[in-house]
Design a protein around this nucleic acid. Structure first.
Lengths: 334, 334
DNA sequence: CTGAAAGCGCTAACAG
DNA sequence: CTGTTAGCGCTTTCAG
């Protein structure tokens, strides 16, 4: 593999000059610069990132931690992060934590070792203290989607408001008994969507009935039976708000299997605007989050942090960026 | 950040001894070893990967190149790769090429620079010559899913056979006029599925009618109109084989909008066993590829290559690993 | 069994 | 404007 010395020799200059030219320093003679560039091209030289990183104390690499890249929303987020990172010369490392604090911790310990410039964490759990120690130690971190009020940069949506809007829409449409298919409530965005649901009910003078909230037991499929039971009881709802699209799809299957028509007999609304939601029959009304843009925003913010740390610019205080959601009405609601 | 010298000082030994202990060399006194380990723990030391990589000429990092992580099948593959890599101490870098040879090339050029130990390429296009130059230069590479007969390691499925099985099943079920929703045929797996379709027809004495094959024009949605047109013509098929599940879903929507019943009026079968396929109504019959296992197999093979290159073991000849597919019959076929 | 020294490829003072 | 030098943190001969 060709290195900087080879280029230097070929161009008849010293290694430092090659370095200067290739790092875009302008204090180099036009002619010398030309020779170096030519030599570099001729030798198809590209600098060794490891050596550079060792010298500079950074690697131009960031880590993206997600619960699982297989979950609906993360591929799009990942693409936003990756596109943005690449444009700024950063490479991204993908880490699946599987909602396992131990796996998360193992990653952090390994990656902290000076060779990762910063973290985008979309996998944070309430008890992820090793993540907290990251920013306490001055490491650039931005939280994505899961935010617990810590003093750190974050990119989120207003889940309370978004859920409120969805439920409110249902109520305006004349629905009186609205059930909730609720994900694991230790996750802050589910807790918030729950709060938004309650607020919308309250503001419209509708009673909150705990029996109408379906709690996820093990996995998305648990909603299949929960929905069936609820629908067959004497509490049959006229609408169901699911806190994610996959849950909505399962709910719809259960409803279908009970012989109910959507939206004729019952309306369904989801959350996330996953790809499937527009494809199923009937197409699902849902709340969309700007996933790609959230990935972009998180990456931009992280890179700003990294740069400002390197420049020793006085650190700005952490800020949380709240991205807008949209209510998308398709044909699963009347 | 604490480094090897700090540990050495703390333990009262030299840096080389620390290195020996931490690299698991056994030629170290029991007591010395204990002291070093203790010091390392006390200081919460972990070695600098960049320095190590620079010295050793490798980074324990591999790159996974995919067309887009948002495509149905890649998250699962990525998870298989990542799990396997992590278990062997490798980190994976994710690269989305967007089917763009220029992006792919930019990645390769950047990553070749001694700091990536090997590549898993799931994005290869017929004219990806920079990928070819990779293994020609002795770089560890394994191709995933897209294989053009080159002399290089690959992990694939037998797409001809899988498509043959699907179409054959349809024919056995009494279908006589089977249409094909065909993806971009410059991609080898689509070309193979097309070949399997033709072979099944031929073997069963059914005519091959070019008018029954729907060619993707721009994106998956193009099948919506193509399907509608076909169905309204006097060639109305009694079954449609879609070369991927998303295509099948679009086809089903078109059929539904034409008032046709599935599978009553027409059967539909897909390919990939994507998550959605079991969720839609009716649940889609499809061909499943062992995506996770393919990721695992590719990672294992790559790591073997990397290791054997380092050990200077004589290189085994490249081999292609063909993984099994399954025909999954649900309710979209009769 | 252990320490000293060299060097992986690069950049950043520091001289000239 | 350019070359020389030192050193980033680690592993690995080579001596002892």
């Amino acid at each position: 593999m060709t290195n900087i010395k080879d280029v230097a020799k070929q161009a008849g200059v010293s290694a430092s000059t090659v370095s200067r030219v290739l790092s875009g320093k302008n204090c180099v003679n036009r002619e010398t610069r030309r020779k170096v560039l030519e030599a570099a091209r001729a030798l198809d030289y590209s600098p060794n990132v490891l050596a550079k990183g060792l010298k500079m104390g950074r690697s131009n690499t960031i880590a993206l931690m997600v619960p699982s890249i297989e979950n609906e929303i993360f591929p799009t987020i990942a693409r936003g992060v990756e596109d943005t990172a690449r444009k700024s010369g950063y490479t991204v490392i993908l880490c699946n934590t599987y909602e396992d604090v131990a796996v998360e911790q193992a990653y952090i310990n390994k990656l902290r070792t000076r060779w990762i410039d910063g973290f985008i964490v979309a996998s944070m759990l309430p008890n992820s203290d090793h993540i907290r120690s990251l920013w306490e130690d001055g490491f650039p971190v931005v939280l994505l989607s899961r935010y617990y009020g810590d003093p750190v940069d974050a990119v989120i949506v207003d889940n309370v408001q978004a859920a409120y809007d969805a439920v409110n829409y249902l109520i305006r449409g004349g629905h009186k008994r609205i059930a909730l298919a609720l994900g694991r409530k230790e996750l802050p965005f589910y807790a918030d969507r729950w709060a938004g649901y309650r607020a919308a009910l309250a503001d419209n003078g509708l009673p909150y009935d705990e029996r109408l909230v379906l709690h996820e037991t093990n996995g998305t499929n648990s909603f299949y039976h929960l929905t069936k039971e609820l629908v067959k009881s004497d509490l049959r709802p006229d609408a169901i708000f699911a806190t994610s699209d996959p849950k909505a799809v399962v709910v719809m299957r259960a409803l279908h299997d009970c012989g109910l028509r959507i939206p004729g007999d019952i309306s369904v609304i989801g959350f996330d605007n996953a790809y499937i939601s527009s494809m199923i029959e009937p197409p699902l009304s849902t709340v969309s989050q700007p996933l790609y843009e959230m990935g972009v925003a998180a990456a931009k913010r992280l890179i700003r942090r990294i740069r400002s740390r390197e420049d020793k610019t006085p650190a700005e205080p952490p800020s949380v960026e709240v991205m807008p959601t949209d209510l998308i009405i398709r044909r699963s609601t009347r």
